[in-house]
Design a protein around this nucleic acid. Structure first.
Length: 891
DNA sequence: GGCCCGCATGGTT
DNA sequence: GAACCATGCGGGC
């Protein structure tokens, strides 16, 4: 069992820690020969051979084959040793009994995520696969995840004691140091942990070890590392006066964890009050609370605290197999980051994040990376991805400024502490493995801070991100790297994602399944959204299910990261919006806009059912009527009020009156006395103001301005309504709603939104066979066939008329002149721009599109349309256009 | 004049 | 009402 190398250096040799080997080896060894973590917190020093076996996971098979404790993996049947310190991290106790080897446990983690598997604890336990010290080893324990991430109800329901135990177990087994590289860690249930600790508790506890451990964690800001290594350390707790109640190793461990979490040596030694919790008993609320807070603080800064450990190799290296200076530190601590400040923070055990931060991270920042994605990121390696947070890019984030505003709590939780506005360089790796260095800094702001990542533009551009897309920050262990992934706003329904949910180069999140708690609504059914939105576009469809629409609108806000009202506009489009006073004033809600829709003349809408939702569909585009206001007088009589476009006087109308978008007194066929603008107004403005608050007393424009509180759900058609109002008497360009996209929120998954504004990038191809495209094409085909038929009939009819009345007919009165669609041609100054440009459709493209649009081209809703292509001469012939459309649709 | 930096403002939660 | 945060905006280069 001797090796030549070791024999050559017997004089200064150490003896292999393996009692069945005892092979001497040089001291210091030429190569690192680290084994498992000892109860003392140190690492067993092994000879080359044993070390190799240990690293390969064959140690027990080699040396403990005759020992007891062998069991079979419930999944693969592989023999698993469960009877020694070396094997402790190589198996997982199953809830239903039995054990799984870590490999199987890990698989089950991926394939059958459940509340436990999704829990931070489990994630952390995956870390047990790490070879090297994971900076985050105890991070899950602390809590960014424990309570923020996923926030599994299960987790929330756990008692404090359970939480504590989980945390403790989590970090203990999360620690690569103690687990060394054995096999990949898998999921651990609480039971498993408890059992494991029971096993551990059988080991003798020596006072010396306790002292060692105690000293270690007292000295170290992250004493938790030392104290938590193994349950044995809890002997030290005894020294604190809690020994009697902490006989159980697991319990003791729990206690020591808490103490360590305090990060305060004093509290450690004098924290008896905090320690008098029986291991198996439920932690008293007060104690638990205090503990949690401490814990959270530690955890939130975990990676960096860990890095701090690295900065103090003298104390930590022993525990971490001399990993000081490991890539971890480099990753998390770029040179500039390794500053005294950081050390000070670490030494002081200060936590930048309190429990509040942990628990109050807004749901919109919760990472929504699925296990699947995690697996994709980590690949087949033993890397463990820990989602930290995500953020939907704002316009300014994705703009040229190159500054990504970080949510404060996220920044403080997961990024290094910075005390100077200059901040620190932060190395982040994108999903392609490319490293980026951003400047992580902050601005003082209202006695607070605004954290930003500077220099993100190249990265943003490389990932082809834009406002509305989501960037995700994760940490990959054991490297400890920060990973910046992304999720395109359209990914949930984009072609590729529809089919494979591929993450691409980012971590696209599947539309469903993972957003159980937060992003439901239509987010959970993007195709439905698409269909609805598409229907809006194509047919000016009126969604019968208003509740659905509301959901839609709300969803856009809630599930898409809580975009603010009106904040989805980029600076440019916002300027446009501001400059357009009318646009600003003329906001109407979705419902109001819906009310303005009028069926096209002589057209009976047909109700179609799309995925269970009714759509009122017109074969011809509806027109927008004039907005009116309904009132009820004291006698209970209902009436309707409308304002003359010319004199601005308000006229009372029957409730069933439907007005064209431009309505004047002369159109007042219901009240001949007031059919002239010269006629006095029936009611004074004061009375009207009472009847129609906020409307009658305002200017022409603002009279119809509607409070914007409900705008969130109105975004879709507010501009549509504006068109009607601003249209100055002209019908809504019937075709426009079909080709121009109402303002959707970033992240909107409708088929229009998923198209990049620039026309670049992935988009739905003509051959796309996703449900959205198929449905759209099918319906489009039907519509076009009908339309073509009708058109030819009209043309024939018009031709006949022309022959008869040629002398009286205006040359412009072309066939189909009565077609309301025709009127739309003349509408060129409508503020359609506002409808689209905020969501990414470029102004130029929009202008071009608008310029080239013809009503009959309207149905040509090539949702993948490119502005450049729009410049192509528009077919004069309707039929030609139709043909082309049909061809497209047929593909 | 354009860009960048840093702070201020104000809407939103 | 406080905190957060998107973005506006002024000043400097």
């Amino acid at each position: 069992m001797s090796s030549p190398s070791s024999a050559a250096a017997v004089a200064t040799a150490k003896i292999c820690f393996n009692s069945q080997c005892k092979e001497p080896f040089p001291d210091p060894p030429p190569t690192r020969r680290k084994g498992w973590r000892l109860r003392s917190g140190e690492i067993a020093e092994l000879c080359d051979r044993c070390s190799c076996m240990f690293e390969q996971g064959n140690f027990c098979e080699t040396f403990h084959s005759d020992d007891g404790g062998w069991r079979n993996c419930e999944t693969c049947g592989k023999r698993v040793h469960c009877g020694c310190i070396v094997s402790a991290p190589t198996y997982v106790f199953l809830d239903a009994g039995g054990v799984d080897c870590v490999a199987c446990a890990r698989k089950s983690l991926v394939t059958a995520p459940n509340q436990m598997l999704s829990s931070p604890m489990l994630m952390s336990q995956q870390v047990s696969e790490r070879k090297e010290f994971p900076a985050k080893s105890w991070k899950p324990l602390s809590g960014p995840f424990f309570g923020q991430w996923r926030q599994s109800p299960h987790m929330w329901k756990m008692t404090s004691a359970q939480s504590d135990l989980q945390q403790r177990l989590s970090y203990e087994f999360d620690r690569p140091n103690c687990i060394e590289k054995l096999t990949p860690g898998g999921r651990y249930s609480i039971l498993a942990h408890e059992k494991k600790f029971e096993n551990l508790s059988e080991r003798p506890i020596t006072s010396s070890l306790n002292n060692v451990a105690r000293e270690r964690y007292v000295n170290s800001k992250i004493g938790i590392d030392a104290a938590s290594t193994f349950g044995m350390f809890h002997g030290e707790d005894n020294a604190d006066g809690v020994q009697d109640s902490c006989r159980h190793v697991g319990e003791n461990d729990s206690v020591s964890t808490r103490k360590a979490v305090n990060g305060d040596p004093c509290s450690t030694s004098a924290s008896g009050a905090n320690l008098d919790v029986h291991p198996n008993s439920c932690v008293k609320p007060a104690t638990s609370s205090a503990i949690k807070e401490d814990t959270s603080s530690l955890g939130l800064a975990a990676p960096f605290q860990s890095a701090n450990d690295l900065k103090e190799p003298s104390r930590y290296s022993n525990q971490s197999q001399g990993q000081a200076g490991s890539p971890l530190s480099k990753q998390f601590y770029p040179q500039g980051m390794m500053d005294a400040e950081l050390q000070t923070q670490i030494r002081n055990g200060k936590s930048r994040v309190d429990n509040r931060a942990r628990s109050q991270l807004l749901p919109r920042y919760w990472p929504r990376i699925t296990d699947k994605e995690l697996q994709q990121i980590s690949g087949d390696s033993n890397s463990v991805i820990t989602p930290l947070f995500e953020k939907m890019l704002s316009a300014s984030d994705a703009g040229r400024i190159g500054r990504l505003v970080l949510p404060k709590k996220c920044a403080e939780a997961y990024f290094p502490t910075i005390s100077q506005p200059e901040g620190l360089p932060l190395k982040v790796q994108d999903a392609n493995g490319k490293d980026w260095v951003f400047q992580f800094r902050f601005w003082p702001n209202n006695n607070s801070r605004m954290y930003v990542l500077e220099g993100v533009t190249p990265c943003i551009q490389a990932m082809q991100l834009q406002a509305g897309d989501t960037v995700t920050f994760s940490r990959i262990d054991p490297e400890g790297k920060l990973i910046m992934g992304f999720r395109k706003a359209s990914s949930v329904s984009s072609e590729q994602d529809c089919q494979t949910l591929k993450s691409g180069n980012g971590f696209s999140t599947p539309p469903e399944g993972d957003n159980k708690g937060t992003a439901k609504d239509f987010k959970g059914n993007p195709e439905l959204r698409n269909l609805i939105n598409t229907a809006e576009q194509w047919n000016c469809t009126k969604l019968a299910n208003e509740g659905l629409l509301q959901k839609d609108g709300l969803n856009a806000r809630s599930s898409q990261g809580g975009r603010r009202k009106g904040s989805n506009l980029g600076s440019k489009s916002k300027r446009l919006r501001i400059e357009n006073e009318d646009s600003m004033e003329l906001k109407v809600t979705w419902e109001e806009a819906q009310q303005l829709l009028r069926p096209p003349p002589n057209c009976i809408p047909s109700v179609v059912l799309v995925e269970g939702h009714e759509f009122e569909e017109y074969e011809e585009a509806p027109v927008l009527g004039k907005r009116t206001y309904f009132t009820t007088n004291r006698s209970g009589e209902n009436c309707q009020w409308a304002q003359c476009e010319d004199c601005l006087k308000w006229r009372r109308l029957p409730v069933d009156a439907l007005l064209p978008s431009r309505w004047t007194c002369s159109n007042n066929t219901w009240d001949s006395e007031r059919s002239l603008c010269s006629a006095a107004q029936e009611l004074s403005m004061e009375l009207l103001a009472e009847l129609i608050p906020c409307k009658a007393g305002a200017s022409k424009r603002s009279k119809v301005k509607v409070e914007t509180d409900n705008v969130e759900v109105s975004d879709g058609l507010d501009t549509l309504a504006n068109l009607a109002i601003l249209g100055e008497g002209e019908n809504l360009p019937a075709s426009q709603p079909t080709t121009k996209h109402p303002r959707h929120r970033p992240g909107c998954t409708c088929i229009v939104c998923i198209q990049p504004p620039s026309g670049k990038g992935p988009k739905h191809k003509q051959t796309c066979t996703c449900n959205v495209c198929l449905t759209v094409k099918r319906r489009f085909r039907t519509l076009m066939l009908r339309r073509e038929k009708r058109q030819s009939e009209k043309e024939a009819e018009t031709a006949r008329k022309q022959q008869k009345q040629q002398s009286n007919q205006s040359p412009e009165k072309a066939p189909g002149g009565n077609d309301p669609l025709k009127i739309d041609i003349g509408v060129s100054n409508s503020p359609q721009k506002a409808m689209t440009n905020d969501e990414g459709i470029s102004d130029e493209g929009f202008e071009r599109r608008r310029a080239s649009e013809s009503p009959l081209k309207a149905p040509q809703i090539d949702l993948n349309i490119q502005p450049e292509r729009e410049e192509e001469p528009s077919p004069k012939s309707n039929s030609g256009s139709m043909l082309r459309l049909l061809q497209d649709a047929a593909t």
